[in-house]
Structures are given as C-alpha cells and as structure tokens.
Design a protein around this nucleic acid. Structure first.
Lengths: 248, 248
DNA sequence: TAGTGGTCTAGACCACCGG
DNA sequence: CGGTGGTCTAGACCACTAG
C-alpha cells in the first residue's frame, strides 16, 4: 500500500488521504465487485494487513468504519462478515414504521402489480436515468399483524434488475433479493415524509375513508457507490402506527 | 484508573467494562455536572491520560466515541471542545424539516403563550413525572422564509427549568437556552411522526383549510443521563417542505 | 516554534469461539 | 487448543493552529 507520506514535501497535501481510508476503499471495492458477498467471512485483520503491507491497527480502523456504516459485522472469536440484509437489519436501518403499542415487526407483503415501462420524467430525475431508459414498477400492499397499513409504489432502473418481475419472483425482503439475485448492495438512502390526503384507490386498500390523512414517504435508496437504485413511495396510515426517527 | 483486569480470575467477567468506557463515563460526568460547559476547551489527550494514569490511546478512544455522539468537537491543532447547541448542530441533529426546494435553514419563531400548570396524565407519562409535578407549557408558531409552516406545543418539567417563561425570556434556539440558563444538555431524542387532519386553530395559524393533512411530530428529548427533559408536538404543513430522514 | 489532534506502527494481553 | 476480534500500551511522525 503506497501512501502519500512517501512524498512529504512540496504538495502541502492537497489530496491527502489517510492510509486506512485507502484500505477501506479497496475493501469496499471488493464488496461492490462481489468478490466478497453478503454473509461471507472475510480474511482476518492480520491476513489483510500482511497482504497490503500495513499494520493491523490500520486495517482495524478501516474495518471499524465499515462496521459503523453497517457494511460489516464483527464477531469476536469468529471473524468479520459482510453484512446481509436480513430482517433484523432492515428493521433497524430501513423500516421506520412501528406499531402504536409494541415493538417493530417486519411487515407482510401482498404483491399487486409489476410492470416494465419507459421511465417517466420524474423517475428519470430521481433515479438519474437517461431518456429512453426503462424502469420496473412494483405495487404492493403491506400489513402489520394482518392489518393493511401501507400502500407502496416502487420504481427500479430496469438495466440493473434484468428479469425482475418476469421470471424472477418478487420476495418480501427486496433488499435481500437485490443483493442475492442482482449483486446490488443497498447501503443507505434518504426519506422525505409528507402528510397528504389519501388518493381514493389507496384509501380503499387501507380501509380508510377517502381523503383521510396518510403519510407519504418518498425514499431514494443508493448502492455502495452512491448510485440511486430504487425509488419508492410509501403511503402509510398512522391510526395504529407511526414513523419513528431517532435523533442521534 | 482501576480496571477489572486487576482481578482476572473467578468472575468469568460478568460486569466487564473496558477502560476507555470508564474514562468516557468520567468525562460524561464532568460535562453533566457542568465542570466542563458547552463551548469550553477540555484538557488535551495527554493531560487527561496523565491525570487518569492511562495511555493516550485509551483517552482517544473515549473522546472518539463522544465525538461520534456529537458531545464533543475536535479541531486539529486547537484542541477538544464540549459541543454547543449552535444553529448548525440543531439543524443537523434535531431539525428535520426542510424546504421543498433548497437547503435546510433555521426557522424563525413567534411565541404565542407560556403557562405553568400541573402536569396532566399524558405529560406525566411522557416526561416520567410524579403526580402533582408541574410543567411549563410553551406554544409558538415557526416560519421558514417568512411563511408560517409549524405550530408547536412544548411541555417541560417545571422543576428543571425554574423561572422559564416568567423572568427568563424564551429564545428561538431553546436547546442553547436549556444549556446556558439551566445547565441541561439535550443529547438526543426520538420522534414519532403521524399524519392527521389539522385542528381548526392550527389550520388557521398555518393558513390552511380546516382539516388539511399535516404532520404531527411528537418528540421526547433526553438529557445526557437519559432523563426526558422536553416533550414537544410539532404540527407541520408539508405543501412547501418535508420531514427528511437519512437511512444510515 | 510549541502544542494540539490525526495517523501509523508494533507488540502485549484479554475475551470469545470453534473444533 | 489455536485463531479471531477487543483492549491497552508506547512511541514515532504528520497536519494543523496559534502566538
């Protein structure tokens, strides 16, 4: 591993990048390229350090950062693993809708429609697509404890998910599916929440009177490299549940 | 600093607590007790290490954790400071309402009422108060760029904020006020967001038709030791703004 | 130039897991 | 038992700030 510190003079350090970040970038690439798949045990700190010619402490710092970003999970005595999008992780990192009384649970899903179509203007803008690019659209209703609370609309870049909705079935845990079937690791995202009057169709699906207030949650999910890979609009009734956010 | 490692046998480590966490607890106590106030420069890593008889690396690990929790800010070449609740921090950590187009800005506030009253059942439950305890209630309207978008109701334990709303004026940046006038450091909180039909009074304040959908954001803010110190209900119209949450 | 935090190294020992 | 991550130490040097 070559560091800029071998060239200490003259530059006044314009593009200084610490060694542990270079290590991290390299490890990120191995995950993004599928060399290390979700769930896999990666080499030990000592092995990585020896391979790259850096100290164990430097590797540790890189792994610590990736762990804090939920990309890795470490287990003392066992090793370091690439994080999977299991239900526990989804619940903790991505699913913010919690029943009024009780703890968060993973919702059931009922698929309504899938569709492959040319992306409209809004989809192109949100997903950063080119004119003519196609999207896969998915519509479903999600329930907590048997009661429908969510009407959800997703748009995905068709190029990244070939065959999705055709020969490849839509599972409940989509991010696990993205990872296992398409090699796409969702690493984060942003949600914008608004209050709107429920459109008639969604109100009916959720058993609400027409025009009842619901949450409209727009999420753009991104892959490891920051590319948008999913846009979803979640309409959620909040009589029996709430959108929960921790301020940390 | 005494560590459990001086007693390695027999216990099989039931209450093992790493040295750096003991250091952290001690430093947290100094902030909570007001020995180090927000904005203050704390001693250097070397000084703390020497004082406590641990290595600099151990102190560093404690400080790193506290920095990641936004309790400290570190500036290379200057030192380590206790974090203040300045507008930049509020905006980043606590204020999730962002204008539709444009970047987050700190809202203006117009105070409507203050009141000192016996806590009702809901306030006692949320703020963990005893029967008979009193609360300070604050009502205000907040605007973004001159346009009212938020109607807000706060309840605070009166015991923790003596004189608030009487001789002590209500500033716009409340958490800065809690800290500077009452020695209370808000370290985090949780928000529960629902969609409701705006009550008539709030609709009028926000210039909305009666019954328009608005966000109802219930926040419980906690001090360093986890004690609830504020309950606020924020009603927010989302025609021109949205509640934004990062999934990390 | 002195002092701070930031990086990097090397090595020791502890806690935990599996075979 | 050996191997893993977790903690702790000691020391070197770099990057940055202030006076």
């Amino acid at each position: 591993m070559t560091a800029e510190r071998v060239m200490p003079a003259e530059t006044a350090n314009p593009g200084f990048r610490p060694l542990y970040r270079q290590v991290k970038d390299l490890l990120l690439k191995r995950i993004g390229d599928g060399i290390w798949s979700p769930g896999a045990l990666i080499p030990s700190e000592q092995q990585i350090a020896a391979e790259l010619g850096v100290s164990q402490g430097t590797v540790r710092k890189a792994l610590d950062e990736m762990t804090s970003e939920r990309l890795l999970t470490r287990r003392q005595g066992r090793g370091t693993f690439v994080a999977r999008h299991d239900e526990a992780r989804i619940l903790f990192q991505f699913f913010k809708i919690v029943p009024e009384s009780g703890v968060a649970i993973f919702p059931e899903s009922e698929l309504r429609r899938t569709e492959n179509a040319r992306a409209d203007e809004e989809e192109r803008s949100v997903l950063k697509l080119a004119p003519g690019d196609r999207v896969v659209r998915i519509t479903r209703v999600r329930s907590l404890g048997g009661k429908p609370v969510i009407s959800e609309y997703l748009s995905l870049p068709a190029r990244l998910f070939p065959g999705l909705g055709e020969d490849i079935p839509i599972e409940n845990n989509l991010y696990e599916l993205y990872s296992s079937r398409f090699g796409i690791t969702v690493s984060g995202g942003q949600e914008r929440v608004k209050a709107i009057a429920a459109p008639p169709e969604d109100a009916q699906l959720l058993g609400l009177p027409p025009g009842a207030p619901v949450l409209a949650i727009d999420r753009v999910a991104v892959a490891l490299d920051g590319t948008p890979v999913e846009w979803r609009r979640t309409l959620c009734q909040t009589a029996d549940c709430a959108y929960v956010s921790d301020l940390r």
